[in-house]
């Protein structure tokens, strides 16, 4: 899976130029992937603050270590290894901290982290709206109950659309292990959401 831009770019040439210190090439690489990186972090961590931190740290690590990238795998896989490791660290820390308050104190008064998250689409029917609101709440709860690895595999497969084989490569495991992880995740969700759908 490469950049989402419709323009075909010679990624290898860009990486080599960036390895030689070409800033414009590095910026092009960042821009080719940063939206999907931010989306992944945002969906996994459900916090603009944490997603922002992961974004910064991931691309700084890429910048510092790009010289050691040897084209043994695709740049996408290499980048996603960095991003998923950072996200897994965040999720594991959060599991240890248990619940994190979603309301932050700012100079402008209290601010709910999730206010920055756009509202999902709703339709005009109030009963239906209420029902879909309940489902969303339940889904978010179930997702938060998954283990970090299950959550990660599910996110990469369901929302990022990556094949299980690629997910295995990113997470340093086999396609079969990724499949088992996805299976456990969907089973848990089916059990928790069966009444709603």
């Amino acid at each position: 899976m490469g950049p989402k831009s419709g323009v075909q770019i010679d990624e290898t040439a860009l990486i080599k130029a960036a390895q030689q210190g070409d800033h414009a090439a590095f910026e092009q690489l960042v821009r080719a992937y940063d939206q999907s990186v931010l989306r992944l972090a945002m969906n996994l961590l459900r916090s603009t603050e944490d997603a922002h931190d992961v974004y910064q740290e991931a691309f700084l690590r890429v910048f510092r270590n790009l010289h050691s990238f040897r084209f043994d795998c695709s740049f996408h896989t290499w980048l996603y290894r960095i991003v998923t490791n950072l996200c897994l660290d965040h999720m594991r820390k959060r599991k240890v901290r248990k619940e994190e308050p979603t309301v932050l104190t700012t100079a402008d008064g209290p601010l709910d982290r999730m206010d920055a998250v756009p509202e999902e689409r709703v339709d005009g029917d109030p009963a239906r709206h209420l029902f879909s609101g309940q489902i969303r709440k339940r889904i978010k709860h179930v997702l938060s109950e998954l283990t970090p690895r299950e959550r990660m595999v599910f996110e990469l497969r369901h929302y990022q659309g990556l094949r299980l084989r690629r997910i295995g490569e990113i997470l340093g495991t086999t396609e079969e292990a990724a499949k088992n992880c996805l299976f456990r995740a969907t089973q848990k969700m089916r059990a928790a959401l069966g009444d709603f759908v």
Partner: peptide, 9 residues
């Protein structure tokens, strides 16, 4: 239903 909770930054 799972698609409905996806966030776009």
């Amino acid at each position: 239903a799972l698609d409905g909770i996806e966030i776009t930054p």
